[in-house]
């Protein structure tokens, strides 16, 4: 989150790849974050169907509800890239509008997650109840944490835009935040399929 010059379009300091090093770092980080979520997904899949006591996924998962939240996150990706598009054209007002919309949609998603989690807990599924509870809350919990960090990042970016620290020349800052946000959305695409949709036929 740097707001100094030497980002965005004009050539920054010399690099051996010719690519901006912050962008390269963000991609390397996302690559590593893939592996992190891979471990959580592996654990979920390895223990799937092995819970000894309930509640089981079929008892609790709500596909229509989760579809809506997945859709919300997907749309937040759209608003994020529209924010980037705005600042790349120098449209500061557009940046702010789309950034705040992305934050709003992200918060809606998080609110939905919180509601879902409390609903599960009320129906007897906690992180300690059974294998499903442990692996589910670990996976979706860490994803929610990633979304929260993203929301804080985007809010900070929006705040910085009011101080004049976000400009067309420094659009890389917004691009980097966007990369992180899209990644978080991508992970949810995978989680939605692997955790929810795959169980759906069993939920009558």
């Amino acid at each position: 989150m740097s707001y100094a010059p030497a980002a965005g379009h004009p050539p920054a300091e010399h690099t051996t790849t010719g690519l901006n090093h912050r962008k390269l770092l963000m991609w390397v980080f996302l690559s590593s974050d893939c592996l992190f979520f891979g471990t959580l997904i592996s654990t979920y899949l390895v223990y799937r169907g092995k819970s000894v006591v309930g509640p089981y996924p079929v008892d609790l998962l709500n596909i229509p509800y989760t579809t809506v939240s997945a859709f919300v996150l997907l749309m937040s990706s759209l608003t994020m890239v529209l924010a980037l598009s705005a600042i790349q054209r120098g449209d500061l007002r557009g940046l702010r509008i789309w950034l705040f919309t992305t934050v709003l949609l992200g918060c809606v998603f998080l609110g939905g997650q919180v509601f879902e989690f409390t609903h599960f807990v009320q129906h007897g599924l906690t992180v300690k109840t059974n294998l499903f509870g442990s692996t589910f809350f670990a996976l979706t919990g860490f994803h929610g944490l990633h979304v929260t960090v993203g929301v804080i990042w985007l809010l900070s970016l929006a705040g910085a835009s009011f101080r004049g620290a976000v400009r067309q020349e420094t659009s890389l800052d917004v691009e980097l935040a966007g990369l992180y946000w899209h990644f978080v959305d991508i992970v949810w695409i995978v989680i939605f399929t692997v955790v929810y949709l795959v169980e759906a036929p069993n939920i009558v």
């Binding site: 790849t17 390397v28 996302l30």
Partner: peptide
């Protein structure tokens, strides 16, 4: 963008999927 970014990301994904399948 540059192919290097795609290579890095796809590399990570390939590793991830491989690990998931291997663990399963």
């Amino acid at each position: 963008d540059s192919r290097l970014f795609s290579a890095m990301f796809v590399g990570g994904i390939v590793l991830t999927v491989g690990i998931i399948i291997a663990l399963m």
